[in-house]
Design a binder for these strands. Structure first.
Lengths: 340, 340
DNA sequence: TTGAAAGCGCTAACAG
DNA sequence: CTGTTAGCGCTTTCAA
């Protein structure tokens, strides 16, 4: 193979202008279909651009006009978690229609990494920040906020800073689930939760506690397990619960990863406890698993819209949007209850 | 709420230099920890930067140094498809270590949109392109390739252009699956496939055909269905097969979406046919579904490495990496065979 | 070890 | 309708 010569350097607007015999600015206008360009000039410029294989330099455009790139950052735990992927999808669609692009970055739920990513995104001058944060103090973003960078906190509210937020009705969803199980006669209900430091975890546990207490059950903590952040850990936690002297008759898992871990642990169990999982997941219907559903794509859409509105000058106090949940009763929640 | 005054404009390097009483270039050197800066100057500049809340302007840096951004584009069908999400994950990790960031964009498998996205990414001067393409002619990328933009085609090889490619051993994987089913006595084996125009589909069908023919089965086309690009379509296709006068005794689905559609269609079937799906998926083990597995994260990693190497000047002829598959035999492939 | 000057490719602001 | 003049914030020469 002959080593081909690459790099006949890229044509610039200046060359297009020269070739078509107009000024830089006129060429710019023509290529951007701005008004006040005669038809003849327009087509001459376009032809020259085509001939030279000209491509606008987005880097130069972003740099020059306004001090912001046309990207919006999405910082979350892990793209391959369907919850985040669906948020990304919702956000991406809205942003694209607004001429923006989504840049996703995974923090692996690690605070250091999250900080580094946010920092990086700020330096890249993203137009906005969509964050599912695992930090517990967001004061460091205050300066950026005052500089006018729109930021929306998704799924978990920010701490020590006022900013737009889109969350799920965690307590409400949990309440419905617990009420349903209580109604079926369950008294020994376990909760298997995510990292203790996450606000979603705390809210879900709190919703659980409230519902349990109001049913007169005060030793609810006995069956609460936390820090099951991945599938294997969740599986182990559930296995452990099942092996205890007085196993729970029902289990609530607080996210899709944990639910899957629970399903693994329950596989082949003689008398599986009832199960309700937070987050809908693909195949939940086939596996007959009851879930607390909500709409992650919508979360992404709303987040994106908020960014877009703020960018367009919307100047209202920070909003907090709470997305509803719905209990989808399937087979898994209808079993294992002891006689009432 | 008092309307707070935002926008005390961002500090620039020039201001940092002024405040610390050094030249622009010295400030630049200090902040980038370049050599040849005395300790005193270094700390003076850092202090000034801190005091002003200075943040480097990534836009200006990208623009000025080299005509490339520090982003790599990943163009694929849909982020919320776990196959793509896992590729993204693999690529993202590698790229981050190289100081690059991944920008994912979904084409929804639509050619127009894919073209527009690629165009957009080129204008944004991404450092490289990772593409799962649904186009059938990539000549339009030739100019870009000659300009030195590294591009890697994932999952589906490019047409009419030479470029790095990372694909799965489609024919081989299909062969293993068919051989397994034939060995169990199946003769009426169906294949439910994706969009006909996708090369992956064609290769998988070809692998299927070869295996069937070499077993003396020449009417294999009878049970082949294509264009099942989403779950509902796949479900309908499988339901249709089941309802035919002489239904197949085994079904092979050619990707994770189709497998899920098939599972839906098979739900509650009296005598479900055997099933083998292309692509591993979460819960496949719980559902006891046999699959042809491979490693999408690795595909992402290799793609990213190829980009990074090319960016670093690696100058070999385009590579074609073929990733192996493995047949994971679970319960679903062990049923429904008629007496041999 | 430091600095001055030049300019990346483009658009904004003003003229004509 | 078209052109001229600046200059975005930074790095890259090259010189001191």
């Amino acid at each position: 193979m002959v080593d081909e010569i690459l790099l006949p350097p890229r044509a610039t607007l200046r060359q297009v202008a020269a070739l078509s015999g107009v000024s830089l600015k006129t060429a710019s206008r023509a290529l951007n279909s701005e008004p006040h360009v005669s038809y003849g000039v327009q087509s001459r410029v376009l032809a020259a651009a085509h001939q030279l294989g000209f491509r606008r330099n987005g880097l130069a455009i972003d740099f020059r006009s306004g001090a912001r790139s046309t990207s919006v950052a999405f910082i979350m735990g892990d793209v391959s978690n369907p919850f985040y992927a669906r948020i990304a999808r919702g956000a991406e669609r809205r942003l694209r229609d607004a001429g923006l692009q989504l840049v996703s970055a995974s923090s692996d739920e690690d605070s250091e990494r999250e900080l580094a990513l946010i920092d990086d995104m700020i330096e890249r001058r993203v137009s906005g920040l969509l964050i599912v944060s695992s930090l517990d103090d967001h004061r460091f973003l205050e300066a950026e906020r005052r500089l006018g960078t729109p930021m929306v906190f998704l799924d978990r509210p920010p701490d020590h800073i006022l900013a737009d937020t889109v969350v799920i009705d965690n307590a409400g969803g949990m309440n419905q689930a617990v009420a349903h199980l209580l109604g079926a006669g369950h008294r020994h209900i376990a909760l298997v939760g995510d990292l203790r430091r996450l606000s979603t975890h705390r809210e879900r546990v709190e919703g659980f506690a409230v519902a349990m207490r109001s049913a007169g059950i005060n030793d609810w903590e006995r069956y609460v397990r936390a820090d099951s952040h991945d599938i294997p850990t969740a599986e182990a936690a559930v296995a452990d619960l099942l092996a205890s002297p007085e196993p729970p008759t029902a289990i609530i898992t607080t996210n899709n990863r944990i639910t899957i871990g629970a399903l693994r642990a329950l596989r082949g169990a003689q008398h599986p406890p009832a199960l309700i999982g937070f987050d809908e997941f693909e195949l939940a219907d086939l596996l007959d698993v009851s879930v607390i559903t909500h709409d992650p794509e919508r979360m992404g859409q709303i987040g994106a819209d908020l960014i877009i509105d703020r960018l367009a000058g919307m100047d209202q106090p920070p909003r907090k949007v709470v997305l509803p949940t719905e209990l989808l009763v399937r087979g898994s929640s209808e079993r294992g209850a002891q006689a009432v």
